[in-house]
Structure formats: structure tokens, C-alpha cells
Write a protein that binds this DNA or RNA. Sequence first.
DNA 1: CTAAGTGCAAAATGTTTGCATACTT
DNA 2: AAGTATGCAAACATTTTGCACTTAG
Lengths: 138, 138
Amino acid sequence: MADRPTYKTKQREILMDYLENRPGVHITAGDVCEYLKIQGATIGQSTVYRQLERLVDEGKLNKYVLDNNTPACFEYVGEAHKEGGDTCYHCKCEKCGKLIHLHCEEMNEFREHLYQEHHFRLDSRRTVLYGICEDCQE
Amino acid sequence: MADRPTYKTKQREILMDYLENRPGVHITAGDVCEYLKIQGATIGQSTVYRQLERLVDEGKLNKYVLDNNTPACFEYVGEAHKEGGDTCYHCKCEKCGKLIHLHCEEMNEFREHLYQEHHFRLDSRRTVLYGICEDCQE
DNA sequence: CTAAGTGCAAAATGTTTGCATACTT
DNA sequence: AAGTATGCAAACATTTTGCACTTAG
């Protein structure tokens, strides 16, 4: 519980800058490495993984796991999920892979029901609703 | 689309037998291999993976991916999800890892809402609701 | 006989770790 | 000075694949 201090390093700043400018976008660890390489600001991949994981813990990033052998996706959410913020859910199309951001009162209500009746506290940051999107229903 | 025929092999039968007797239970590819080894009915791991993947396609198995570096979980659902069957949702506790099977009318309603209003067809077989279970809320 | 399935070992993927070095505070 | 972060390469864990062989239809 006693969080150790977080140093403000050049690498972390570069990474944060990259992520903050892409809110709601799906990014993999590989994307980050590649982008940084192009920018000439190479950061070791272990550092990328370590920082990403930490940012997830801090709540700044969501992490979606799709399949083994498929890179995990990270998404910057910033303060959006803090208390009072509009909770955002995610739908992922199984066909085209599109990620849909859902702001939905009914989902909030269901979430409340889940808590009241089933005593399960839904984590909207880690949950992805899988299905078929409008475009892929031909 | 023209599915090629599925041969009835000894290996597939053994595997099916194992799975059918554990409906709703979380099983990894490793579990299967280990169990079979104990039974002296060794099946090559590639076969296990190939058959499991096929059974998922056939709808007999659900597959849940938790994290990379963590084996995927398979669960026998048999005919439960066929048309008319009672749809079952899954909640997974982020702390203890427990899997909760949820039969919930509200979730069915939300699913319908998602389809009517957001035109997204939820796939209950692939979707896992993450959160904290009752026991882990101290 | 032909197409489909199997098993092995090797490859591929994505992620994590050990450790010496460098940087923050 | 002490604690934290970094980078590299090696290690890991799971899953996939190439290919020769076997089996079901």
C-alpha cells in the first residue's frame, strides 16, 4: 500500500506526452516502441512495459487483453474515470476489431443492479463488451 | 463457409468426453494435457490446441483470455447457448479470480437495449464482466 | 485412395526479469 | 548518498507451425 515514490524521468515524460495526445485510442507496447524509434527517442522495451503497467495501476491507462499472442492494448483515459466523471464503456467488434466508446445510462443502471442484487462491483475500466458492430451485421 | 468435414478421431472423443463432464468449469490447455497424461491417454499438445480452438468455433466451448503469459481458459457450454437456452453471463473477480455464472434478466434487457439503441449485438459467450466479487470487498 | 487429423520438435509472440549502470531526489 | 529507473539480453509462458506419418471416410 505504501506507494514508493515515482521519479520524473525523461522516458516517462516522453511516454506520457505520447499517450496524452491520443485519448481513447488503442495503443500497444509495440506501437509505442516503434513510434519512439521513429522519433529517435528510443526507450528500452522493458521500460515501456514497466511504465505502461504502472500507468494502468495509477488509473491513467486502461488495458485490454484480446488474446494470447496478440499484444495487449492500452488506452489513455486520463481523469475521465475519476469520481464524478462520465463513465465510459467499451464495445469491441469481433469482426473488424473496432473499438466503440459507449456512454450509456442503461449500462450505468445495469451496473448498479449488478452491485445491489449480485454484489458484484463492475470495473468499467477493465471490461470489454464483445460482439458485432453495426457495420459488420451486413 | 463450406465447412470441411470433421473426422471422428480417438483424440477428439477423449477430449470431448473430458470436457462434457465439466460443464461451466474453467479449463486450460495445460489442464487437458496434464489430465490426459495421468490417464495414460497422451494427446499431443498441438492436437489439444487445435481441437480446443475448433470447439470454440463450433460454439461448444467458450474461451476466456485473461492476460498474456496466462493460459486461456475454456469452458464447456454444450447446447446451453443455443437459441432459446437460458443465456449465461460471466463475471470474473479481479482479485481472487473467481468466475461467477450470472443468469440475469436485467442483463438480457441491457443487451436488448444495446442492440436496439446502439446497434451492437453483444456476444455473451465471449464477454466477461470484470470487477470485484462479494467476498473480496472485505 | 484422399482428405483430414496427429505428434513432434522447432519457431514465433508477447511479456518479464536479472543485473550492472545511470539518473532523481 | 540512497532509492528508483533504465537498458540490454536472456529467460519465460503460451500458442502456432512445418512436415512426415497415420487414420477416417
